[in-house]
Amino acid sequence: MTTNQKFSLNQEVVQGKNNIVSEMGEEKVMLSIENGKYYNLGEIGGEIWDLMQEPIKGDQVVSILMSKYDVEQTECEEHVISFLNQLNEESLIEIVANAMQWSTN
């Protein structure tokens, strides 16, 4: 696992360890024990965080969000990638691996 690469939608991500998460109204706030910083994930950010309890591919996150929110796919993809890169830069998530690519012979 690594926490310092740029994220793309065909990769799996999972919540990092050593974070304490709390609800604040409809938003989600978090304390990173590792770096001592507090974060506000916001409402949709909190929803994305919940989706990452188990390893999940970025494009699955986008699909789930598109089923619940009124947003175009391109916009949703850009925003999810941007948000996950923010989390990754703060070492709050772990990028598990590239998705396996199948080929037919």
């Binding site: 910083k37 950010g45 994305i48 969000l65 929110y69 925003h79 948000f83």
Partner: peptide
Amino acid sequence: MKKNWQKPELEVLDV
């Protein structure tokens, strides 16, 4: 009915 979308942002709180 789908909810309104807002760009998710990570806010670092000054605590």
